[in-house]
């Protein structure tokens, strides 16, 4: 038994070492990537072009424009919901509120919730919803606009948002929270309907913030 342990020990040590060196703590970058080769000073260099969330332009809960520019120099968390949604949205908003409280005083972190029911969720409705949720200021933006555009934006974050007669409320959307970095790269996807998902997100936000401190 003892000798077996001894035999095992070096292996265990190796595994631990490997675990340590691989956890360099950088979050992955999601989406397709291209390798581009270009000429710099007469030399050929290869570089990786990562997927970036494309530009968007909507209106927020204060009837002011909200666009990709609003999030320049910020990392942000985004999700898709609608105010009258009877199923997963309340869960998601419960969890997102925790994230909001956690990073409330951090100027580098923002939240962006898109409504997928813009006919009902006007800026005024979103404003009241935000107020009732206990959200003040600009850190948490609620975006509304043309439905087709919002569905398209959903795809650009790699999440589902679409009409579906079979779904409660007539709209189908994913319960994911998406973490986006300052370069518009998608760095994480989390289950926004569970406490565990939100916990993982909050831990990853800390990791991502640390990447910018180096």
């Amino acid at each position: 038994m003892y000798s077996a342990l001894q035999k095992c020990f070096p292996v265990v040590g190796l595994v631990l070492l490997a675990a340590c060196s691989s956890s360099e703590n950088r979050l992955p970058i999601f989406g397709e990537r291209d390798v581009i080769t270009k000429e710099v000073d007469g030399k050929t260099v290869t570089d990786t072009a990562y997927y970036q969330v494309p530009a968007f332009q909507y209106v927020n809960q204060d009837s002011l424009p909200v666009s990709d520019k609003t999030f320049e120099g910020k990392i942000y968390v985004t999700d898709f919901f609608f105010v009258s949604c009877p199923t997963i949205c309340p869960k998601m908003k419960t969890q997102m509120k925790r994230v909001y409280e956690q990073f409330k005083s951090n100027p580098d972190v923002m939240i962006l919730s898109y409504t997928i029911d813009p006919a009902h969720d006007t800026p005024a409705v979103l404003k009241e919803f935000a107020k009732n949720l206990g959200v003040t200021g600009n850190q948490w933006q609620f975006a509304t606009g043309k439905k087709e555009d919002i569905f398209k934006t959903g795809k650009s974050y790699m999440v589902v948002a679409q009409e579906d007669a079979g779904a409660p409320g007539g709209l189908l959307h994913s319960g994911h929270f998406v973490l986006v970095d300052k370069e518009k790269h998608v760095r994480g996807m989390y289950d926004g309907t569970t406490e565990a998902g939100a916990d993982k997100l909050m831990a990853d936000i800390d990791k991502l913030l640390a990447e910018y401190k180096k």
């Binding site: 199923t87 997963i88 309340p90 869960k91 509120k97 919803f129 107020k131 009732n132 949720l133 206990g134």
Partner: peptide
């Protein structure tokens, strides 16, 4: 519990 929460405390001024 989605709205009224597992602990029955509701959610802010929403539920």
């Amino acid at each position: 519990a989605n709205c009224h929460q597992t602990d029955g405390k509701g959610l802010e001024a929403l539920y």
